[in-house]
């Protein structure tokens, strides 16, 4: 499994190295909506980190969140 995944990644690395002339299907000047702050679900980092903390200390699940968590006691 890891051998196949590594092969794909190496192949992708070489493939992408030749993509300097890549034409994006969404041009830079078409990204006004995407760059609007309301498109960022964690646009207020201090609040996003707090919500992450509230759930992670009361649920067994952890990881792969919109923000990264650090270690904490939370006895």
């Amino acid at each position: 499994m890891m051998r196949h995944l590594s092969f794909i990644l190496i192949a992708a690395a070489f493939l992408f190295s030749g993509c300097s002339s890549w034409e994006p299907w969404v041009k830079p000047y078409e990204r006004e909506n995407l760059s609007d702050p309301i498109m960022n679900v964690a646009r207020d980092p201090v609040v996003a980190a707090y919500h992450h903390h509230v759930f992670e200390t009361r649920e067994a699940a952890r990881g792969a969140g919109a923000v990264s968590g650090g270690g904490c006691g939370c006895n």
Binding site: L9, I10, A13
Partner: peptide, 9 residues
């Protein structure tokens, strides 16, 4: 290899 490939990417 996995992380080297990712890093190259």
């Amino acid at each position: 290899i996995f992380f080297l490939s990712l890093f190259t990417l």
